[in-house]
Design a binder for these strands. Structure first.
Lengths: 213, 213
DNA sequence: CGTGTTATTGATAGGTTTCAAGTTCGGTGG
DNA sequence: CCACCGAACTTGAAACCTATCAATAACACG
């Protein structure tokens, strides 16, 4: 059985929920385009993002019939989907796919653990600096001249849910970094990074690039 | 090649560091006895535990030559070790081991994401309640009569590093739960759970046992 | 029975949240 | 094209929770 023959494409509009927590999981998928978030919610509504999905990231887990978090499209999303049970058969017949999936899971685990350090121990300013540094690292792959313009695909509220803050604190910290000349906003969704070294100093991480994820 | 023929046992005393972050990884291992912690540290010394290893848990990752966190024995630990490169060969020759390891990684990932919710959004009291509930769930497997005595293998400081709190706050929350009649301390390392339902109400999680970890 | 480590408890300070106006922005319809 | 409208964002003031600083108490160990 060949994966190519099993794939279908599905699209979701910005704001759509792709998967609900606890819902039977009928497909696994690969992100083709867009941005999606994984989030968990407490009974009183407090929510925490536990992952960010970008193109090439994988959704779903062979062997699991449901997931423990909601998956939501933050901008328009296109997925390349495979029927879950069929996919599982292919995995069993093709050992190196299991290894590849394990490596993806371990990468996610490393990223999750970096995020645990951020959530548990970093100040608001360090959280924002770390977040921006992460965006810069990813954006640089596409456009790497000295003062790259970076696009925010998330609202302040979504950033707050990612960093374990409130949207007001996120806004205040952006303003503070701007006042300190580290970043500059073109508009609310686009900013430029003016001083990467200073930003790194604000992340709280080791001077050498200790953070990998 | 058979795994049985490759194993060696190694022991570590309470407090010993089993693996340093960044150190070349020469073996993978399975916990035989004891408790070990995974932790990450910021440049100024703030630390955050990112995992807890109990008997049967796995250490190390095929395909990685180093790890991103320190592994420390909190009580005496015995490991069953396998040479990393030899183990990797066995994994490649034995497909279902890769699948099993992937499932372990996914379990850890689920646990990490529950912990992200705790670190990012729960109050000190909710963190402590969640922590105790987790201990109770694990202890119940061994001794399941109505008011089980639970042993704390961690110091207040280690609990604080696990929960993203200070040791003083941990101590205060334990005292508060005792004052409210939810737990009762025999001594500083042993307590009994007097009101599981009340404890669950304090975790902030859904009423149905939504948390799986 | 000291002595050092670990834990408890109190007082204070500080950072983030909460509550509450305003403001900017993007989209829509006149 | 412009005015309006709602959503997203910014900013301020006050409250609250947790951290910090400090002193005391309990325990483990020699």
């Amino acid at each position: 059985m060949i994966l190519e023959s099993m794939k279908t494409y599905r699209s979701f509009a910005a704001g759509d929920v792709i998967l609900w927590r606890g819902e039977p999981l009928e497909f696994v998928a690969s992100m083709v385009s867009g941005v999606a978030t994984l989030s968990k919610t407490l009974e009183d509504g407090r929510t925490q993002m536990v992952g960010l999905l970008l193109p090439s990231d994988f959704i779903g887990r062979p062997g699991r019939t449901e997931i423990e978090f909601d998956v939501t499209a933050t901008v328009d999303v296109t997925l390349c989907c495979f029927d879950r049970t069929k996919f599982e058969k292919v995995v069993q017949e093709t050992p190196h796919i299991a290894q590849r999936l394990m490596e993806l899971a371990l990468d996610e685990l490393d990223a999750a653990r970096d995020w645990m350090l951020l959530l548990g121990r970093k100040t608001a300013r360090e959280k924002i600096a770390t977040f921006i540094e992460m965006l810069a690292r990813r954006s640089n792959l596409q456009a790497s001249f000295d003062a790259p313009e970076i696009k925010l695909n998330l609202t302040r509220d979504q950033i707050a849910n990612y960093l374990g803050l409130t949207l007001e604190t996120v806004s205040r910290q952006f303003s503070a970094l701007k006042k300190d000349g580290i970043i500059d906003f073109a508009d609310r969704k686009h900013f430029t990074l003016k001083d990467l070294a200073a930003l790194r100093d604000e992340t709280g991480d080791d001077a050498d690039g200790g953070v990998v994820a």
